[in-house]
């Protein structure tokens, strides 16, 4: 197997995730796109870990999974709050950050 197989797979998933973050309006779908990005990074970490013969990549892949879980928890709580206040989960309606 080539190293590049896995890295390319990671790159493609990453770019699809980036597209999703930019294109999607629904907050839940944006969070899903972020999960794609995080998973692509994990594939890269494990591929490099195998290539270099070290276990550091495994450690950090696990840390990323834990951070992702925390992020989804907080993110969905925010989506819930947003829905409760506005009856909508469209990100384009959130313009409090407008300067």
């Amino acid at each position: 197997m080539l190293v590049n197989q896995f890295l390319m797979l990671g790159a493609i998933l990453f770019c699809i995730g980036v597209y999703g973050v930019i294109a999607r309006k629904n907050a839940v779908l944006v969070l899903m796109s972020i999960e794609l990005i995080l998973n692509s990074v994990n594939i890269n970490l494990l591929a490099f870990s195998l290539r270099n013969g070290s276990t550091d990549g495994h450690t950090f892949a696990l840390y990323i999974i834990a951070v992702a879980a925390a992020e989804v928890g907080v993110g969905l709580a925010m989506v819930l709050l947003m829905y409760r206040n506005r009856r909508s989960v469209g990100l384009d309606e959130l313009s409090e950050m407008k300067g």
């Binding site: 770019c15 699809i16 980036v18 597209y19 999703g20 973050v21 930019i22 294109a23 999607r24 309006k25 629904n26 839940v28 779908l29 969070l31 899903m32 989804v72 969905l76 989506v79 819930l80 829905y83 989960v89 469209g90 990100l91 384009d92």
Partner: peptide
């Protein structure tokens, strides 16, 4: 995620408003 979807009462069926107006901006960036 599924709970989030249910609790925010997103339409279970097709929804044409899932994308931004400017969704095509994502293509060149990606």
């Amino acid at each position: 995620f599924l709970f989030g979807t249910m609790l925010t009462r997103a339409r279970i069926g097709t929804d044409s408003e899932l994308n931004n107006k400017n969704w095509f901006m994502g293509i060149p960036v990606a």
